[in-house]
Amino acid sequence: MRAFIAILAILTLTVPVGAGAAHRPDPVPAQIVRGTPDVPHGRLDKYEAFASRFVSARNVWVWVPEGYDPRGPRLPVIYMHDGQNLFETSTAYGGQEWGIDEALSAMGQKVIVVGVWNSPTRYADYFPQKLAAYLPPEMRAQVTDMAKGELKADDYLRFLVSELKPFIDRTYRTRTDAAHTSIMGSSMGGLISLYALGEYPQVFGRAACVSIHWPLMAPPTTPEAREAAADATAQAWEAWLRTAHFDPKRQRLYMDHGTRDLDSNYRPYSQKMETVLPRYGWVEGRNWRASVFEGTTHNEADWRARVDIPLGFLLAP
């Protein structure tokens, strides 16, 4: 029971921000941060309680690299979920941030990163909404219980695509095409990143799904139940893949997981997905990478240690 509660906390972890979803004009940065121990390179623009017609208001933090020139070259953009965990230890879960700005600066990559904070409806926001229809009834019931109501991923993606991205493209010097627009997240954030790639291929050309939470909910506790759940989950993904709008000739997909703690449950699921995805045009080593990192677990420290790998995949020519 204690392990289940811990898993539930990880999947639904939220940071409350703002209130309401009333539409408002473009926000003004509440704070600009640069030259601090947490943000030693570049600049972090903090938009508080960014309002939307589709989802509840949430913080949006935008990092631009050192030497960014609003009249200079246009830059690629990475949209990342759980934005409070990316740049500053004071807001990150467990006080451990991803160090996205440090990683990109060390890599010499000139890119803009948009960190979208999660909300009190994180699970509902990040669960691939159309996938639920293809799950067995008992699994759909568990998803509904976890979401505490209706799934919201389609509205969350509408927010990203029709409200946030246009604001970012108006405000910053961006390369607006799909080939230079990526989406990235971990755990449930990995699920919504994969979902976004299939729902909006004209917007997102690349996705990175770190420790992607293939079980969708708290994993079964026995190997037999886990195998059955992995079968049902893979079948649901394949049913959705038949209706999705992926363009593997133009898109790139990265996914990984570890082998300890929560991630120790993932291999039966990822193995099945590694047989499903090639049927839909994904070729390992060409437009798709699937990795298992032995000895790593489901937390920001381990994701930070390897974040240059998915970032490098997203930003490769």
Rank of each mutant, 00 (worst) to 15 (best):
F87I: 10
D45A: 06
A124C: 08
T297P: 00
Y254R: 04
P37T: 07
H81R: 09
H23W: 15
V15F: 07
I192E: 10
M188S: 12
H257Q: 08
T89L: 04
E163D: 03
F246Y: 15
A21I: 09
S193K: 10
A19V: 07
A229L: 09
W282T: 09
G295V: 05
E138I: 00
M1Y: 06
S52K: 05
V210G: 05
F4W: 07
T36D: 11
D145L: 13
T176E: 15
L315Y: 13
L216D: 07
N59G: 03
I309T: 15
L44K: 12
K152W: 05
V143R: 06
Q235M: 04
S186Y: 05
S291T: 02
I309K: 15
Q271S: 08
A21F: 13
D155C: 11
M80S: 13
Q251C: 00
V143S: 09
Y156K: 12
A133V: 10
G185N: 07
Y126T: 04
A49I: 01
F54W: 14
N265S: 14
A57G: 08
D125C: 07
R175E: 15
N265K: 03
L135S: 04
A290K: 02
P219D: 11
R58A: 01
I10R: 13
T233H: 09
S56V: 07
G285S: 10
G99A: 10
Y123L: 11
T275N: 09
V276R: 13
D82P: 15
R140V: 03
T12F: 04
D82E: 05
M80L: 10
A230S: 14
D302K: 05
D261K: 05
F313M: 09
P29D: 01
V143C: 07
R286D: 10
S291F: 01
A141P: 00
R140Y: 03
L253R: 00
Y79I: 14
E163P: 02
I309F: 06
D82H: 06
G20T: 14
E88M: 15
D125G: 05
M273Q: 02
E284I: 01
